[in-house]
Computed example of a mutant assay.
Amino acid sequence: MNFLTETWQIHNNINLYLLESINEENLKDLAASKGRPVGEQFAHMHGVRMMWLKVADPALLEGLEKIDKQNITKTHLAENLQQSGKAIEQLFEKTLPGGKIKGFKPLATGFLGYLISHESHHRGQIMLALKQSGHMVPQKIQYGIWEWGVR
């Protein structure tokens, strides 16, 4: 396993850790500024992963499906995030750390940074929506998403 894959796995596990801490009924929570509900934020992350896989290595899309916004559940989100996470791992395993990801500039390390930045932005939106809806995640989770060495 290369360091890109290892870093990606830690990041994806943090997304799953946050998702696990959220009550099913709170997947519909919205931030005061509206935008996507909590569950749709997670679905969006999965969708962006699929978009990049379609460009970079379409064969890795096999078995992946778009998440229907009308049928969002924690189980379905977790399964899909795990599957698309594995597909991204495979993409990184096929790519040398100094190599390139088809359709993305500059290098694979930049692509990893892009994915982590994008999904971390949405994690922040998720946490804000939950807080503003009166369903703030426990402090253990708030700090736990920063424990990269534990995942």
Rank of each mutant, 00 (worst) to 15 (best):
F42Y: 14
N80H: 12
T109W: 07
P106E: 12
N71P: 00
K54L: 13
G98V: 11
R36Y: 14
R151M: 15
L112H: 08
E119P: 00
S33I: 11
L60T: 03
V55P: 00
N26T: 07
G103F: 05
T95Q: 06
H11F: 11
G63E: 02
I67Y: 06
H46C: 09
K102E: 13
L60P: 09
N2W: 05
K34P: 01
E147H: 13
P37H: 15
H135Y: 13
M127F: 12
N71L: 12
Y17V: 00
G35A: 08
P58I: 02
Q82I: 10
G98W: 09
R123T: 08
F104Y: 15
L27Q: 04
D57P: 01
E93Y: 01
A43I: 04
L91Q: 08
E6S: 14
T5P: 07
M50S: 06
K86D: 14
T5D: 12
L115W: 08
R151F: 14
R36E: 02
K28L: 07
D29E: 14
E89R: 04
N15E: 11
R36K: 15
K74P: 02
D68W: 07
F104A: 09
V150E: 14
W52T: 04
G113P: 10
S120E: 03
P138H: 11
G110D: 11
Y114W: 12
A129N: 10
A32M: 11
S21G: 03
A108S: 12
P37R: 05
K54I: 02
Q125K: 11
E24Y: 03
M50R: 15
Y143G: 03
L81P: 04
Y143R: 02
Q90R: 10
